[in-house]
Design a protein around this nucleic acid. Structure first.
Lengths: 193, 193
DNA sequence: GTCTATACGACGATAGAC
DNA sequence: GTCTATCGTCGTATAGAC
């Protein structure tokens, strides 16, 4: 069901801008990247670009939304550690994007920030999806059950986010090991002591 | 051993600036706080303020250094979970500072950033201190020993950092629970199943 | 060494013409 | 829908008074 009229071109251009912005921020990082650079890459003036977005923060927020959407489509319902691993591996290839996510999270602590709503939906959604996976494994008898899956989900996401901060400073940091370690702590198999 | 000559005043003023900057960033957050505001609070012109610092990022880096130093003096060698708890509780009272730390971590991913050296020293030091505590507990027979303390230290710090990201978005997030949960996963006590 | 005044270039944002 | 022109503010740089 193709859009009619002038909307079609506008939506295409909007997508082009978002992809250009994603590429620039991924390569050059969050700091020191201006909207004028993004506009130039799209053969547009700054006001021409701003016609599509309310503000720089709005543009960045939509970049993250697009990023989430493509990641979601690619791995569908993979909430198991292997799915997580894949996400982390890809993040490791694009330090600029990790930096963008972290910077935006900090900025979005202000409820008035455009990205606040995004993260406010995103974290509970992530927790829920991880919790569903953990609950399954518990029902299979493959995991200890003394901590409810919702709490463990918050814990696992914290590990994944937190290790990325250490990795931002030292790129030799192993981002998968801590996830594996938590999972092994949760397993019922021998290995204790 | 008091300093002589004109240095004394300069150092005092430098400290005043750092405290003023800390207060402003703690209350108004990282974004939207300008050096001119900090200068005004110190009854100084902007260049007058810049006489003491190489750049804005340099000033912010020294704010974090000062922050670390006072925290270190106050709790000395407390690397146990209760010491951590205290740090987290105080962080919870000053969202702007947490935002500052997270934003600076992201920015410091660039090795050329003045804060890069700070974090590059800070994380290994933190890991080492936590590892020492964990090793003690292991030797006391109070903890499982199947994962080496160095790896667990990275894990615990990731949990502490990561849960703060979730807390930045949702202030009702319990920042102590995930720490407690990891510690209970590490304990040898019954509770399994 | 401490500090003010002034100016510069770049940023995000907006007004209004086409 | 896209432009030129302009705005206010930012961090920064320099000159020079004391």
């Amino acid at each position: 069901m193709a859009k009619r009229g002038p909307y079609e071109k506008g939506e295409a251009k909007r997508g082009e801008i978002l992809h250009a912005a994603l590429e620039i921020f991924a390569t050059e990082g969050y700091r020191g990247t201006s909207l004028r650079k993004v506009a130039a890459k799209c053969n547009l003036s700054l006001p021409g670009l701003m016609h599509y977005f309310d503000s720089k923060e709005d543009l960045l927020t939509q970049v993250l939304r697009m990023r989430d959407e493509t990641a979601r489509l690619r791995q569908q319902e993979r909430t198991d550690p292997d799915g997580y691993r894949e996400v982390i591996r890809e993040g490791a290839r694009t330090p600029g994007l990790v930096e963008l996510f972290v910077s935006m999270t900090a900025a979005a602590s202000d409820p008035a920030h455009p990205a606040h709503a995004l993260f406010a939906e995103r974290y509970p959604m992530l927790r829920e999806r991880v919790a569903v996976y953990l609950r399954e494994r518990m029902e299979q008898g493959a995991m200890r059950t003394d901590i409810p899956p919702e709490r463990l989900a918050a814990l696992l996401i914290a590990v994944a986010d937190g290790i990325q901060l250490q990795w931002l400073i030292d790129r030799s940091t192993d981002m998968e090991q801590p996830i594996d370690d938590v999972m092994s702590l949760l397993s019922l198999e021998p290995g204790e002591r």
